[in-house]
Structure formats: structure tokens, C-alpha cells
Design a protein around this nucleic acid. Structure first.
Length: 114
DNA sequence: GCGGTGACTGACA
DNA sequence: CTGTCAGCCACCG
């Protein structure tokens, strides 16, 4: 579907985030790229920071190195790690390990941490 | 207009 | 592995 349609950049970012299936993750830059806004990783972060939609799967958005963007030990960090774990995504020391999930099919894997 | 700041990123040491 | 740096864009004082 055309996430790059003529909506505001924020709308496209949100659409791209909502497009991340359960159990999957994507980097800020990746989300921005999918929204038709290459190089706008910081904008994606800005949008998530100001988002108010409780249904938005913001916890599936990570940094490019596969780490959670929040400082380790912070409220947001624990919350995100908890939500990811609840979806079957392995989180080790603030780092996501999708490939480490047991009995995981290739079909569900679009992006994996380095 | 200018400098600081941030849920970022890639390159390099 | 860690840390530094430059590039990047939007926002604020």
C-alpha cells in the first residue's frame, strides 16, 4: 500500500510504524525510508516522541544498531523491552535478538539486528 | 540569523 | 567491544 501518499510527513511516519507486523522490528531510519522520507530518522523519533495514539506499536521501532533508543534502566526502556518480549522478540541487555528466537520462521523476519 | 539539543546514522579510530 | 565525529533535520531561546 502507498504509505507515500500525499499526507503530512508525520502521518506517513505513523502509517509506516503501524505497518510493522507483530513480532517484527524496524529502525527509525528504516521507518522513515518506508514512509518515503529517506534520511529523516530524527523526524521519525520526533513523531514517536509526540505521538499520543495508544494503539501505535512504537515499541517495535529501534535504533539502527538494534538497541532500544531509551537509556538503559529508564522507564521507557523497560516498557519497550517488556512489550517486545511479550510479542516473542528476544531482548538481551537492551539489544533485540530476533534471530535468536526459537522455532522462528524466515517468513516473519524482514529485518534483523546486526 | 545562530547555537544548542535530540526516542538518529554511518564511518572511523 | 567502546567512543568520537560529522551529517542530518526540526524545534527552541
Amino acid at each position: 500500500m502507498d504509505l507515500t501518499a500525499g499526507d503530512s510527513p508525520e502521518q506517513r511516519i505513523l502509517a509506516a510504524v503501524r505497518a510493522i507486523p507483530r513480532g517484527q522490528v524496524a529502525a527509525y531510519g528504516e521507518v522513515a525510508r518506508r514512509a518515503g522520507l529517506p534520511g529523516r530518522a530524527r523526524l521519525a523519533a520526533k513523531v514517536l516522541a509526540g505521538n499520543t495514539d495508544p494503539a501505535l506499536p512504537w515499541h517495535r521501532v529501534l535504533r539502527a544498531d538494534g538497541r532500544i533508543a531509551f537509556p538503559a534502566g529508564s522507564k521507557g526502556h523497560r516498557e519497550q523491552a517488556r512489550r517486545l518480549t511479550a510479542e516473542g522478540v528476544k531482548v538481551d541487555k537492551g539489544r533485540v535478538r530476533l534471530a535468536a528466537a526459537a522455532g522462528f520462521d524466515m517468513d516473519a523476519e524482514v529485518w534483523a539486528p546486526r
